[in-house]
Amino acid sequence: MSTLVSSSLASPLSLLQIETQFGDRIWRGDALGSSPDQVVSSGFNELDKALPGGGWSTHSLTELLLPAEGLGEIRLLNQSLKYVTQSGRNILLINPPHIPYMNAWENLHIDSRRILTVRACKPAERLWVIEQGIKSGAFGAVICWLSDANPQAMRKLQIIARTTASLVFLFRPVSAQFEPSAAPLRILLSPARRHTLSIRLLKRRGTPVVLPIYITLPQIRPFSSPVIPIPILAPA
């Protein structure tokens, strides 16, 4: 102890020396945080670049704030969910807002036989199901639509999520952005133009991002026939 003090008094280490000495154990606040955990690529280059570690990180919560369903949230997760089922793991959907239409999910190359849906009406039960789903370690991805969760519950979920290598996505309403949350990654989704999603990273490990990221979702293939004018819609 005394030698350490005397040496540091004699000649304080320069920043460069400190960095070479301690190497990867130091994380500089202005750099993008790297994730020690395994990540799953989101399939969108612009988004991967902005996410710590270069993709959706396992072992932690990802909060997606969504103003309404049908904005392309499933297409956003498409690549990672496809990866999960193709690597032989299952997906747990807790309280999906509507019935998932498996034909469409199959079109996105997500194996519908690996999707398990759970309906839990009470908020306490919902949290319990998420906990059990993460703890069981049987799912590659746990996705929950969580309208209300207090910060304590989120903290608990985050601690549990640290234990297993699952992707955990929580879809929450936009109003939740003003509540504190223990999730290390919080993303606000909003539509920009048609087939474009604006992504604002509210919170991430690393420097904050001010500007939203725009990603182009895979186009929904139009019907084989071209759009024909609809006479009924024209004002009479």
Partner: peptide
């Protein structure tokens, strides 16, 4: 044929 265009969510 090619896959049909279907939405990810269905109403009850």
């Amino acid at each position: 044929s090619h896959p049909l265009t279907r939405p990810a969510w269905l109403m009850d």
